[in-house]
Write a protein that binds this DNA or RNA. Structure first.
Lengths: 346, 346
DNA sequence: CGATCAATTGCATTCGAAGTCAAAGATAGT
DNA sequence: ACTATCTTTGACTTCGAATGCAATTGATCG
């Protein structure tokens, strides 16, 4: 009776108070802690008998290996950082990344930047958590990139590319995409005057898209181009229309937006405030191919980024580099898919 | 010279090869490891002199405490799990949560469920990472909830409430919100026939919203109500309109949608496929108050969930419960904000 | 100037799992 | 039966920071 009492008390203690550790399992199964540990390591040398014995206790006690402790000794946390600036990230990207990593047993520690200025604070936190790698969809200075190098933390940029620094990145071909949109616009005679709504000045993507557009327009002999700036948000698209009209004194034939969100704002401003027809009076194009772009209300001409391929590429490139530190930087460039929609005249 | 050589080699070694540890700092500063550790603990007993001495070395070596090792000994990882089913989460919620936690030195390990069936796998991973707590925006069975209890991991539900089980949760008052939307609809004589587009059958939120709507309609003496089911997505909103017409043989006066996304689909189907006027021919209401709801294209009548208050509440309730395990379950209920928009006739 | 007490500091241990190595057990060959 | 080889197993150490406790320093006061 005393024995039964002791046993029960111990079990209660183990299951309610402290976490169940490999020692608890070992003791329960009457084996050593090493044996328990080995049962959780794939290719380890364990007899079938031992494995069954241990697993029975594991089940009974509800043991789960402590990933923190494991990470300490293996120097591998199976955690990666995903850094996004919350202003203009597509929710799909984050959840796609998270799922794809999860499929490989890796988890995502999420860092969102409200102001990109917090980056240094964020980076410090990243170091503290000993992440195995990072996917960054934000602008880093070359000093900041160098720290990743120095700390030996593999880094993959998502949709950011750097001219001067050698980094691994996944990109959608911004210039190419933008050019094919402009091609579409230039197929119609009606488009003579243009407005370009670019993103924030410090956005490299916006720069590339805008540059692609400007170059292609110049090649097409177009000179009547008004440039205004937005912040990638819907409202800034609406304001961009006002700004454009103020600057040029009239409505342009086409508005080229650095992303879809702003294009929605532009369309709404044109249609509902100025009571113009899109595409009858003004054509509009965006970039990204977010969900809403294909909704009938907009049916926006845009470049759809191949998010699935891009996230898959980002994940596998990062994991490859975690497993093998010597892989050289690599840039993978995906072509966007042109979606004509119905916001281009003719 | 030999000395200089040695010193340099060591520094290189420390900065490029292995991570800098508190021992490295201690050695560099000529103090004990405990001293270094104490310098990073807020209320610790450290002299100003010591702190400066240590911090100088910390700066020089670029030391960052290893959160993994710290977590092991303190039994506090400063990581919380955020579990969302990716189908219909608002991106804002996740980034709001992430930022608010970050402000309190806590980080978010993100778990997205593609199929809600993966929950048990996800839960196992959660246990492994020794998270300090979890915010869950998905349905858990009462057995699953019990495991949190048993493992002593504080749990806060986001927008899920349970009748039978005592849990801590933050909710938007679904029924109340839905009722005030219906009030709005019933103010107009023109609304006699209704369709309700509910969410997936297993969604508690959808159930509550639908029930709120049905009850209020019944109180208003309305009997002509068609119910169809969607999956919270845009496309299912479009299909819901077709289904409704097929079932009842005509277009209802108003369509009540369990969320905004489906309302957008409904509006687009009505306007662009059936060429009906919203709100002229049909009124539409949604629920959630997502960004796009206020865009002119939709200007949807909806209930805006107070995301900021709700996320703040969720974060502080969770942290309170992490700091003090004895706090009782608490349900916080926020009222949504009625936004009339212009999708209701009259 | 020495005694008393508080503020600092260092030593040694701890958290939980994984890996090293040597001992023990199993299998085969002669 | 006995040795040689291969497989399992357990004792012990390690990862990096935190902390209880003891030793030391410093401050205060008679």
């Amino acid at each position: 009776m005393a024995k039964a009492g002791t046993s029960t008390r111990k079990e209660n203690f183990a299951s309610t108070k402290r976490h169940v550790t490999s020692y608890d399992v070992a003791q329960h199964a009457g084996v050593s802690q090493s044996a328990v540990s080995r049962c959780f390591k794939p290719g380890a040398s364990v007899s079938k008998k031992m494995r069954e014995l241990v697993m029975a206790s594991v089940e009974e006690l509800g043991y789960q290996p402590n990933a923190i402790a494991r990470g300490l000794i293996t120097r591998r946390s199976n955690i990666v950082a995903v850094v996004v600036s919350n202003l203009h990230f597509y929710p799909e990207v984050v959840s796609e990344l998270s799922e794809r990593f999860a499929d490989r047993g890796v988890h995502v520690l999420l860092f969102t930047l409200d102001h990109e200025s917090d980056i240094s604070r964020t980076l410090n936190q990243i170091w503290q958590y000993q992440v195995d790698g990072a996917i960054v969809a934000a602008n880093l200075s070359s000093e900041e990139i160098a720290i990743f190098e120095k700390r030996d933390v593999p880094l993959v940029f998502y949709n950011r590319s750097y001219e001067d620094v050698q980094v691994t990145s996944v990109n959608c071909h911004q210039v190419e995409g933008e050019r094919s949109l402009i091609n579409l616009l230039l197929q119609s005679e009606g488009h003579r005057s243009f407005a370009i709504v670019s993103g924030p000045p410090d956005s490299i993507i916006s720069m590339q898209r805008t540059r692609g557009a400007l170059d292609r327009l110049r090649e097409g002999g177009i000179t009547d181009v008004t440039q205004v700036t937005g912040d990638y948000g819907y409202k800034s698209g609406r304001r961009a229309v006002q700004d454009t009209i103020e600057i040029r004194g009239s409505v342009p034939d086409a508005v080229i937006c650095a992303n879809d969100m702003m294009a929605f704002g532009v369309m709404d401003e044109l249609r509902f405030h100025l009571e113009l027809d899109v595409p009858g009076d003004v054509s509009v194009v965006g970039f990204d191919g977010v969900r809403a772009a294909s909704w009938s209300s907009f049916d926006l001409a845009t470049i759809a980024q191949p998010v699935e391929s891009m996230t898959e590429a980002a994940v596998s490139m990062l994991i490859d580099r975690i497993d093998n530190r010597d892989l050289p930087p690599e840039k993978r460039l995906f072509s966007g898919v042109l979606r004509r929609g119905s916001t281009i005249r003719n």
